[in-house]
Design a protein around this nucleic acid. Structure first.
Ligand SMILES: NC(=O)c1ccc[n+]([C@@H]2O[C@H](COP(=O)([O-])OP(=O)(O)OC[C@H]3O[C@@H](n4cnc5c(N)ncnc54)[C@H](O)[C@@H]3O)[C@@H](O)[C@H]2O)c1
Ligand SMILES: NC(=O)c1ccc[n+]([C@@H]2O[C@H](COP(=O)([O-])OP(=O)(O)OC[C@H]3O[C@@H](n4cnc5c(N)ncnc54)[C@H](O)[C@@H]3O)[C@@H](O)[C@H]2O)c1
Lengths: 220, 220
DNA sequence: AGCCGCATGTGAACGCAGGCACAAAATAGC
DNA sequence: GCTATTTTGTGCCTGCGTTCACATGCGGCT
């Protein structure tokens, strides 16, 4: 097995993107694709795309292109999607409910298998087919259900505590929606999604675009 | 006014992070902060932090540190947060509802001022105090309400259409939650939040961490 | 008033990522 | 079987971002 030790971090989101677009192409009946086609469908430079694919082994045929099915398989293998990933969600509020109801996770092989909250009105009732457990049961329930990834969607001040419990439970990958910087041991990987930050970056660009950009009516 | 033309793109999320943490420090009664303190609170290298702050002008005092209040003001000015930003949200489903109810936007000066959907059960009823309009009214309503930023939270196949309407309405900044690559004119700035991609990146790291990482029960 | 210590601001080196352009390989056609 | 065509795979260069290390400048102390 060629365990390539060096896939650039910057390539990972693109690999996931290729995988999704390839899935769409398959639905349209395609079996092969060239790097130029896939590049324009994903908005990625074709040379960069080929280099990305080369990180996971040479799956293409020169003069022809890439066979979609094995390429998708290789991508799934690289991203670790062959083993169904089990996800625990902590904090079943507005955002948590939306995440539970989101079909996009299951489609990519992620199964939400445990829900946690501290609200007595929530604990014990099923949401999306899964009974909400009390947060204190994280260290017990997560190993039972083979949880690999933890999602933190609690209010900010509760996030570090939730994170600590997940880490205690052996979870080494955490996706954090709370607007706090989580402190974790070095072996734990945290990714943060901060929507306010996204808006602030857009706001910066809005300021730059037109210096006096106040939204003006489109002339038609 | 020193309009520094060159703030690295990579620094922007950090600037937003500094701003939030400085706000927390203010709540705790702090008035000054050193680059080392702020660096450890944000998890950023202190030299990088100082360089980031230098992009928006020299707000520090050597031997002392940074005065928090003026620094926050400078950050807000740079990020364009002094003018209250008006946000339109298209697609009021599970995710859309969560976004409407999210207080974190208002806290940072973003006001959701228009909601759009095509569902006849939604159009006309108020959600979070704002009446949902039909999507076709985007080009009319957005300029009226001074919308600067559009958020797309429709299903994938509707996202491009929603995006086009926003662009027609003069919106130049778009935050996209749908799992599609939006096509926009070059003057429009799109940021994408794809939760499935985040999970896939975590999944990759989980595969790398322990080669045979199947979640094992914590020994206690 | 002058000196000392301390934190900022930044020059310079390094490393990573992106993109061009071409060589290598495989197929199709003659 | 040989050549032409097409598309992959990649070497090399360029530019950006990060980090180190230190000079700079300011406040406090005597
Ligand atoms: N709603 C959004 O659109 C949105 C967007 C971006 C970020 N966020 C962030 O996501 C987090 C959740 O947002 P929300 O809108 O769902 O908030 P919410 O208040 O609706 O839900 C929070 C949930 O967490 C639970 N909770 C509280 N303390 C807990 C603890 N110690 N352990 C476990 N669960 C606990 C609460 O019972 C509640 O169910 C917040 O940090 C918020 O800043 C939300
Ligand atoms: N729910 C989540 O946690 C989550 C997470 C990540 C990404 N997403 C993405 O966000 C988007 C919305 O997710 P959701 O769970 O809210 O879906 P949803 O089905 O609950 O809501 C979609 C909403 O969009 C509306 N809509 C449909 N066509 C429209 C159109 N042409 N114009 C305007 N509105 C239209 C529908 O009426 C509905 O209200 C999807 O693309 C989804 O992939 C959702």
């Amino acid at each position: 097995m060629t365990r390539e030790r060096s896939i650039p971090e910057a390539a990972l989101p693109r690999l996931a993107l290729y995988l999704r677009v390839l899935g769409e192409l398959t639905e349209n009946g395609a079996e092969r694709v060239s790097s130029d086609e896939l590049a324009s469908a994903t908005g990625v430079n074709s040379a960069k795309l080929r280099k990305d694919l080369s990180y996971i082994g040479s799956n293409g045929t020169r003069g022809v292109g890439y066979e979609i099915a094995p390429l998708m398989h290789a991508l799934e293998g690289t991203l670790g999607l062959t083993q169904n990933r089990s996800v625990a969600l902590v904090g079943i509020g507005n955002l948590g409910h939306a995440l539970v109801g989101y079909s996009g996770f299951a489609e990519r092989g992620f199964r939400i298998s445990a829900l946690f909250d501290v609200d007595p009105d929530l604990v014990g009732i099923p949401i999306g087919g899964i009974v909400v457990e009390h947060t204190r049961r994280i260290p017990e329930v997560c190993p039972e259900r083979g949880v690999t990834i933890g999602v933190v969607a609690t209010p900010g001040q509760a996030a570090q505590g939730a994170c600590d419990l997940l880490v205690d439970a052996g979870v080494r990958c955490i996706l954090n929606f709370a607007p706090v910087v989580l402190q974790v041991p070095s072996e734990v990987d945290v990714r943060k999604v901060d929507l306010a930050v996204e808006l602030q970056i857009l706001s910066f660009h809005a300021s730059q675009h037109g210096p006096g950009t106040l939204p003006r009516v489109v002339n038609r």
